[in-house]
């Protein structure tokens, strides 16, 4: 139950950052916090002790660690890294056209 609360707290913190912050870099950080919240939640809630998950004769399935959440999270981290990279590239591109990198630039209020 503790992990679920931490997850909701972190996820909402990230969402709050996106909604409130003006700086584009902080927006990207907010997205990263949301992603990290999901990853930590899945790994923490699915962990149970056990041996290395290699299916071979003599190994009972109940003894091994469940490998699927870890595989899913690895894939998720790759996606998260690529979206963050793309977002930061876009922030750099915005900085070529405008002197500041705040949301006002997107609204056309400042150059």
């Amino acid at each position: 139950m503790f992990y679920h609360f931490i997850f909701i707290l972190l996820f909402m913190l990230g969402l709050y950052t996106i909604l409130v912050q003006d700086n584009l870099i902080k927006l990207v950080i907010g997205l990263t916090i949301m992603e990290a919240a999901i990853f930590l939640w899945v790994i923490a809630t699915n962990y149970r002790g056990g041996i290395i998950p290699i299916l071979q004769p003599g190994v009972i399935e109940a003894d091994v660690v469940n490998p699927i959440p870890h595989a899913l999270i690895l894939t998720g981290i790759v996606i998260g890294a690529s979206t963050t990279a793309l977002l930061l590239t876009l922030v750099i591109e915005i900085n070529k056209f405008a002197t500041v990198i705040t949301l006002d630039v997107l609204k056309g209020l400042r150059d």
């Binding site: 969402l15 996106i18 584009l24 927006l27 997205l31 949301m34 979206t83 793309l86 977002l87 876009l90 922030v91 591109e93 915005i94 056209f97 630039v105 997107l106």
Partner: peptide, 14 residues
């Protein structure tokens, strides 16, 4: 283009 993309990708990722 860059501005529209920023909006698009932020909502897409959320």
């Amino acid at each position: 283009g860059i501005e529209a993309t920023l909006k698009y990708i932020i909502y897409g990722v959320i």
